[in-house]
Amino acid sequence: MQNLVHRLKVAWAERAIALKALSFAMIGVVNTAIDFSIFWTANQLLGWRLVPANVIAWVTAVSFSYAMNSFITFGPESGRVLRWRDYATFVASGVAGMVASTATLVALSYVLPVVAAKLISILVSFVVNFSLSHFVVFKSREQQRS
């Protein structure tokens, strides 16, 4: 057991990609609750169409996601400091995830219930968002200098 704990500490200190993905996913669970709650309220309770409801949900959730991932998942890369420029880059890269999510939502809404389509669209956006966050937005300072 101590060996496992030690290996996890070393992996966390080295910021292994699997642990980053796990951290990103855990923050994503909360982010998903924010996204889904706002989407459901706008679409079902306020009667907004799918695309505007999805976009407003995403804009709110992406702000939360940037802050949490800057401090936790990509803390060493960001210096645990929130910067407007980094936020803009995070949001810009997140547009790809939002587009993938919205396209998936709309396409699947023709063959699945909206709830199922929304949940699948969230999974699609996770893959796109984590990849862009890891390889573009929060790349290590050494990679940024090259």
Rank of each mutant, 00 (worst) to 15 (best):
L123G: 15
R80N: 07
W12F: 12
I38L: 04
F135S: 10
L50M: 12
I72H: 01
K9R: 11
V10E: 13
I122L: 08
N54S: 13
N54H: 11
V81Y: 04
M1Q: 12
S140H: 13
R7L: 11
I34Y: 00
T41P: 00
E142P: 01
R141T: 12
I72Y: 05
G28R: 08
I122K: 02
S78G: 04
S140N: 10
V111E: 02
V106K: 02
K139P: 01
A88S: 08
P76A: 09
W12A: 15
R7E: 14
S65C: 10
I17V: 14
R80H: 12
V10T: 12
A16S: 15
R7G: 09
F64I: 04
M68G: 06
S65W: 02
N31K: 01
S101F: 00
S37Y: 00
G94N: 07
T32G: 11
S63P: 02
S63D: 02
A117F: 08
W84T: 06
Q44G: 12
V5Q: 13
L105C: 06
A18G: 13
S93R: 07
A96K: 01
M98T: 04
A33D: 00
W58H: 13
V81H: 08
V114M: 09
V128T: 12
R15C: 07
L45H: 10
I120N: 06
L82C: 10
F138Y: 15
V5T: 14
S121T: 08
V128C: 09
V62G: 06
T60Q: 00
